[in-house]
Amino acid sequence: MSNSSSMPAQAKSLKHAGEDIWKNRTEKVNAELFTLTYGAIVSQLCTDYERNFQKVNEQLYSMGYNIGVRLIEDFLARTALPRCENMVSTSEVVSKCAFKIFLNITPQITNWSHEKDAFSLILVENPLSDFVELPMDAMKQLWYSNILCGVLRGALEMVQLDCDVWFISDVLRGDPQTELRIKLNKVLKDEIPIGED
């Protein structure tokens, strides 16, 4: 309970740490270059899968997962953050540090589930989908930025959090906002060497 009083201060320091790393210790590239590179990847996938967008979603997710499991190492090395004790602090770290350091955005955290095991990130800006407009046939099915879900899932899994991550809405689909949902399934146990029991 005593935690709750120190929470705002902690959140503030996370924000500060994220901004400091972004500002002073990050090599940067043009965001448009990033956008158009990702665009080329998605467009190639749409061609390869003959506009079966379900498969494109899966492929982007899978690609993101493989990035996430490696990206977390860089993140931990850069921030030197300790393990998060609950999902509330995890959400703060994801939004204020991780997104800030890698994409220079700070999504809002909302829609906490009753058990505090699921939350939503509202992406007001999204460097992956800047200047992107989906064709009619893709609007219904394609989750353009699905790679983000994969990255989050992979990275969180590496810190023993088994999560489901998916998009609920996307402005590219005509929704009012871009909302990404993260739900904790279970905290993975630290493995004990065989023969200990």
Partner: peptide
């Protein structure tokens, strides 16, 4: 101009091969 982390870009680029 708006920027993103070079590492994020690099990983995206390298992940294109797999």
């Amino acid at each position: 101009l708006p920027k993103v982390n070079q590492i994020a870009f690099q990983m995206l680029l390298n992940e294109m091969v797999p």
